[in-house]
Design a protein around this nucleic acid. Structure first.
Lengths: 142, 142
DNA sequence: ACAATTTATGTATATTTATACAAAACTGAA
DNA sequence: TTCAGTTTTGTATAAATATACATAAATTGT
């Protein structure tokens, strides 16, 4: 069941990113439609872990959003080793950062694997890791 | 009484910035100690206006904080006219930005006056407005 | 495989936050 | 000043969120 949580976390980040969620109850229903059934209590805990917060949108309405630091500032370092980028993040933030990186859809990135505070980014063959890092960094800054 | 609200908003931003507020009730009590008595309901509305959100701190505990965009991203423009900087912000954000600017404590800045979405920054004599703008911008990013 | 430990989740509920509504305070114009 | 319109606030309460506690599931070490 440990995998369920991860999957759900991904789905949550995804939904938070793409839609305007105004309450955990709505999020719960959305998750239900994709076969992920949990209670509001669990979502409260998930959101806390994921650093997703209830913000005020441009329209003045409440809306859940990923905390801004995630998109850039919470990356502590980004080193290169061959065709791998090794990113260190604040504790527990690797998943969220990975999500952001994936969302960039950079051609030079084959995929990511995230642990708790470390993240591996696999650079595609024929791409310069240094260049990819630069693109990643730029893209991730908002 | 219109002035009370402004004063309170300043105080709120100040407290949010300096202390770890975990609930509106605590904020209410703090404000009370400095002679500002309002109900939780009013604070809920204040925080919405000020774009102050309940985030998760580094220690994993809940904590109110000014939304990050405020510190930089919500500045739409920053023009120079003589010894004045004229900043335009998103609607209702001028106060919050002014607070941030004041907090920088830059020697080249005499003071700020904020409306709703516009903010005047008075540059001290003997300082280059262009340089001050640069410092302000830099300081406000983060 | 088993026991011990850790992690995840639901249930029930406490706590916290948002808001409908009414009243009060303020504003601008005549 | 007085009136009409606007804004702010409190009260009461609805709505939303967090968590104590119990249990189940997963993990670890043997």
């Amino acid at each position: 069941m440990y995998r369920e949580k991860e999957k759900r976390h991904q789905a949550i980040l995804d939904l938070v990113d793409r839609t305007n969620l105004s309450s955990q109850e709505i999020l719960r229903k959305m998750l239900k439609t994709i076969g992920l059934e949990v209670t509001q209590a669990t979502l409260s805990r998930d959101l806390k872990e994921l650093h997703v917060v209830k913000t005020i949108g441009e329209d003045g309405e409440y809306k859940y959003a990923i905390m801004e630091e995630i998109s850039g500032f919470q990356i502590a370092s980004c080193d290169i080793s061959g065709n791998l980028l090794v990113l260190h993040t604040d504790p527990g933030m690797a998943q969220a950062v990975a999500f952001r990186v994936d969302a960039l859809g950079l051609a030079g990135i084959l995929g990511t694997v995230a642990g708790d505070d470390t993240l591996l980014v696999v650079v595609a063959e024929g791409y310069d890791s240094r260049k990819v890092r630069k693109d990643l960094w730029q893209g991730v800054q908002k």
